[in-house]
Design a protein around this nucleic acid. Sequence first.
DNA 1: TTGTATGCGTTATCAT
DNA 2: ATGATAACGCATACAA
Lengths: 344, 344
Amino acid sequence: MPAQKPNGKQVTMRDVARLAGVSQPTVSRVLNNSATTIPVSEETRQKVLAAVKALGYRPNMTARSLRTQRTQMIAVMIADISNAFYHPIARTIQDIARQHDYDVIIASSDHQYDNERHFCEAVIRRPVDGVILVPTYLTDEDIDRFIAVTQTPVVALGQHITHPDVDVVWANDEKATFDAVGWLTADRGHMRIGFVGVPDEFPPGPRRWWGFKQAMELAGLPINPAFVFQGDFTLDGGRQVARSLLSKADWPSALFVVNDLMAIGLILELQDAGYNVPDDIAIMGFDNIPEASIIRPHLTTIAQTPVDIGRKLATALFDRIEGRVSGSRRMLECPCTMIPRQSA
Amino acid sequence: MPAQKPNGKQVTMRDVARLAGVSQPTVSRVLNNSATTIPVSEETRQKVLAAVKALGYRPNMTARSLRTQRTQMIAVMIADISNAFYHPIARTIQDIARQHDYDVIIASSDHQYDNERHFCEAVIRRPVDGVILVPTYLTDEDIDRFIAVTQTPVVALGQHITHPDVDVVWANDEKATFDAVGWLTADRGHMRIGFVGVPDEFPPGPRRWWGFKQAMELAGLPINPAFVFQGDFTLDGGRQVARSLLSKADWPSALFVVNDLMAIGLILELQDAGYNVPDDIAIMGFDNIPEASIIRPHLTTIAQTPVDIGRKLATALFDRIEGRVSGSRRMLECPCTMIPRQSA
DNA sequence: TTGTATGCGTTATCAT
DNA sequence: ATGATAACGCATACAA
């Protein structure tokens, strides 16, 4: 069962056609329109299929793409491959893509604007049928330019994207933060609560800060500027915040941290310095990554629904790729749920 | 600066040629052979470049691929996107690929033979210039068929791949296991050591088992079959082993676990049941994933060098893609280093 | 130095 | 129901 020709070249439809004694377009018809649109006699059908099998013919997607202007590929840009939050998202997208018989290109921007732009350039050069974006710095203007050039359906994670052609999957993290801080005050009785955020350039930064601020206001609690820190979403960033905290005489009784990775870094560094969480200080995170259930104390955090997010992103994209949906921006909300564990 | 034509179609070389007042092949020459092989007058050069800029022309990689039979893409199949061990590998490969101006398709087999075969099929249909494989079940025969069809350079991680055309990056995990178990006996004085492995179908399974067995033999220690468990590389698998351990009256004093994820699951479940690691039982893992430094007690484990592994895989592949290397199988070894921490 | 012609492997529009 | 023929966008052999 030779899968390639003796000369080492690929088996093409011409070869199949020759062996089957039919014309090359007939092979194409047998293989693609499986007797739906275009009729083909059962006899030639069998001849062709036999030849396909005998030669081990596989269609060449590159040629097909050039001809059809469709690639059967989608591209996915996540923000950080090391952040477990994105793993179920990526996996779910892959699963759904496969159900639609699409291949997936995954890239990680690692939260670098440079990488984000490179991704767009790469996708312009190598067109795909759809794009899923988890943008950090990418602006609506960037996305607008991208769409103008590619004419490709785009869906994104994060409500900061407001491009009229881009479906957006989002979670109400502002409200989730608000509720969680309210729980910290009302249920847990904390009155001195600090905040570990990220610079405003990171989309979730300002939103979660507002949720925090409003909850504190509602509770009639002052915000102590000395209890407000900035990190960078990473574990090491959390450790640095902890070191800065360790240098202070006055501590908050609880800390709201905008993502789990930083919260975990904080706890580890605090523990290394001999402190106890939550007795010395309570810590609450955001994301509910698997590590939150590994660290001791288990991390109290706000769960997002990454499988659901991945599913919504992928189905929204295929809705447009396959023409079931057109028109402007849809907003698809995913829930946030607070998960009380041991750290707060 | 219109980046696409009014009719919404892509800007092609023909458009550039028309605007610049030259022929389409001239545009091609200007853009590709940057005055190296084929000479082109500075004047037309400038005209062409101006037209390229004015129209926002971007080459179409699909057409180029069809013509050149090269794709400027490589495909990478890792074993489990959720396993942090593979993240630096994937990232390093991406970085190096970008330096070579290649795009990367990443897929995760999730340790499923089915997915592995699907990956091969997908890459046959959509040819790439090179393939990096982290095979779990894929056999040399599978790979042989794959290479026969695609004629594409392949490099793989794991010494169980012995195909003569495939460069292999590997670590001597058998010896690392042997040494680690030796350390457990000689340095830590353990005499009742158990083993948590995986079924033999998983490539590292038999090798690490042999390392364990030989170390026990050398130390003159018996292997108690009741202390030998099987998991599946996952955190939950580790928890299940722990539950099975909890049902036994007689315990080993130390457990060698073939990967960190299972070791961590084990520790968590044991702790949930009120036991102390390492006082009640010492645990040693393998991989040194980031979570090993998150769990308390920090996990004693064997570090591999994922960045180095990724670099070796990628450079080996590009050595062949770019023709610097030909001929048969190269073996590229990466070191293993035991990292004593708190769990053993 | 540049233009003409051809073909990569496929799908689609014609005929017949 | 099937066979010519053209075209997708590009790179290259050849001619000029």
